[in-house]
Amino acid sequence: MEKIIEVEHLVKTFGTNEVLKDISFDVEKGDVTSIIGASGSGKSTLLRCLNMLEEATSGKILYHGKNILNGEVNEDKLRTKVGMVFQSFNLFNNMNVLENCMIGQVNVLKRNKAEAKEKAMHYLSSVGMAQYVNAKPRQLSGGQKQRVAIARALAMDPEVLLFDEPTSALDPEMVGEVLDVMKELASTGMTMLVVTHEMAFARDVSNNVIYMYDGRIEEEGSPEKIFNNPGKERTQDFLSRFINK
């Protein structure tokens, strides 16, 4: 399979605090990679380095073989290809649902309004939010906001989608609706990297699981291996906390 992202010896420090320590892994087209690990282990920072919301300190991030860290790749261009869905949704509060899904297409991709609207409607329908085009974010529930945020990211026709704990800010009864959308997306072959505490999602939907501990990849492998037969004691400890819950 074609490699989309290759991370090589990635290091990220905030001041003197080394948050990512020598991270290396690959993402192939169609991969659904779950990133799990304790709070503060660097999961968000890793994800944010991949779309350059954080500037990596050293190492390489190859996107289709091109290193995005040496200035050759335009960061705004990259972000249209590597979309992101946030824990806190980050929908534009001054725009309605439809405008949220159109602004990037019109402003960045220079699509005309009609085309942008059609695309926005297409993805809003696919996340079940087409009826809410006129609503402002503040008028939506958390689950609805997150589904709009996913549609907004999809409307840019990205190649990879990064999810940073997309269900962590949701009331329990809304987690399912967002996970369902993500499952459906995974089944269409979208390449996804998902930071999550939803172990069922990591086990059932992803084909690759990365367990992070203290800024390193402690263990990486298929969900069967990580969940049924973890090789490291720390992975076992971490997972046992979820199973016992």
Partner: peptide
């Protein structure tokens, strides 16, 4: 909210 800026930068807006 800084999240508004992040949301915009994350879809490639300048």
């Amino acid at each position: 909210d800084p999240g508004q800026t992040e949301g915009a930068r994350a879809i490639g807006m300048s």
